[in-house]
Amino acid sequence: MTISEQIITIGCCVAGTMLSRFLPFLLISSRRPTPKFIIYLGKALPSAIFGMLVIYCLKNVTFTSGTFGIPELASIAVTVLIHLWRRNMMLSMAAGTACYMVLVNLVF
């Protein structure tokens, strides 16, 4: 990516973010009730989006050859288990990442 392409990419992320922040104040009058469909999406979207983002993180993993995605799946399992145990975001992230780094550097 050239520098200007990088700036445009970051600019697109800024624009998408600002759109989501300013849109309610620009479009919706607080006197009129919020459309039911919007309220429904507000409840239904987050899980779907974060599920999508988990897959997005694994987009370059090949499950049919090489390491067969074992380091990724094992480290995700560690992250989940540590999180179920302590419910501490930073700890779970650190444990999962450390596990992954050990696996890709020392084992596979």
């Binding site: 239904a44 987050p46 599920g51 988990v54 989940v80 992230m93």
Partner: peptide, 28 residues
């Protein structure tokens, strides 16, 4: 991998809050 771990944690927190996981499955 720290990014993957972060989204796994956020997704899991969301998962633990729900009784049913249809929308999570839809996303995945």
């Amino acid at each position: 991998f720290v990014m993957t771990a972060m989204f796994v944690v956020i997704f899991l927190d969301q998962w633990l809050k729900e009784k049913r996981h249809y929308t999570a499955y839809i996303g995945l």
